[in-house]
């Protein structure tokens, strides 16, 4: 069992000068991240906005240790994660990072509890406590009445709550949410946002949420915009203008 870095009292995310380009199909090079920097402390939420296709999901994947980077330094929970093995990255993800996606991504053949338990199992939670923790997490997202429901029988909002419970059951230090309310109506979106903010407050987590929804962005502590491969404050027109 590998364990992640211990809490060090500093930033959860400390990323400086991240760069990532893809070779486009035509032969040219798309530079999604050129010099993106981001620091997020515990108990802090950051909204990342930006045009479609600008590289927001790529940034989240990089922060989630899925995306190898061309350049930059990334310290997660105080430790440099560049050059970590696949196994070590997986272990960090399993224990410390919770993902939430626009399209929920539940395991369709498992019940709500089964989905959450799977995450707990991969996080290394012992068999005895898994079920209890899964139920606790589902209760937290207001689904204690649908514990044995299959994802197919759940509404979009309910599915996203299961996804939230699955992300939160391991009490992650970092929550990465990619347009978590993108597929939901306003009321449901507000509920999901509430759960995310509670999780940040309760488990001293850092939250990075990619969103198009101004309401969600406003609810976060900071609002950033990914533009020309850099993360800039949303309302800082000077910066936007200077790079344009």
């Amino acid at each position: 069992m590998s364990s992640g870095p211990e809490w060090h009292g500093g930033f959860v995310i400390d990323a400086v000068g991240l760069a990532k380009s893809f070779r486009a199909r035509g032969g040219g090079v798309t530079e999604l991240l050129s010099d993106a920097s981001l620091q997020v402390a515990p108990w802090t939420s950051v909204a990342v906005m930006g045009r479609s296709g600008v590289g927001k999901s790529t940034l989240l994947r990089a922060l989630g240790l899925f995306q190898p980077l061309d350049a930059g330094s990334y310290r997660l929970l105080g430790s440099d994660v560049s050059g970590l093995s696949e196994r070590a990255c997986s272990a960090l993800r399993a224990k410390h990072i919770g993902f939430v996606f626009q399209e929920f991504r539940l395991l369709p053949h498992l019940t709500a509890t089964g989905n959450v338990e799977t995450a707990a199992a991969i996080a290394g939670m012992p068999v005895r406590t898994r079920r209890r923790e899964a139920h606790r997490a589902l209760e937290l997202v207001g689904l204690s009445h649908r514990l044995r429901a299959s994802p197919r029988t759940l509404s979009g909002g309910e599915q996203q709550r299961v996804a939230l419970a699955r992300a939160l059951v391991k009490r992650p230090s970092l929550i990465l949410a990619d347009e978590p309310t993108g597929a939901l109506d306003d009321t449901t979106a507000a509920a999901v946002l509430e759960i995310l903010r509670d999780a940040v407050a309760v488990s001293a987590a850092a939250l990075v949420v990619v969103t198009h929804d101004p309401v969600v962005a406003q609810a976060c502590d900071r609002q950033l915009r990914l533009h020309d491969g850099q993360l800039v404050p949303l309302l800082d027109h000077t910066v936007v203008g200077s790079t344009a």
Binding site: S90, L92, R93, A94, F99, R105, L107, A119
Partner: peptide, 15 residues
């Protein structure tokens, strides 16, 4: 897609 989801949950490729 399910396999990818399991990877986001922290499952290694060898797992």
């Amino acid at each position: 897609p399910e396999l990818v989801t399991l990877r986001t949950l922290g499952a290694t490729r060898s797992t």
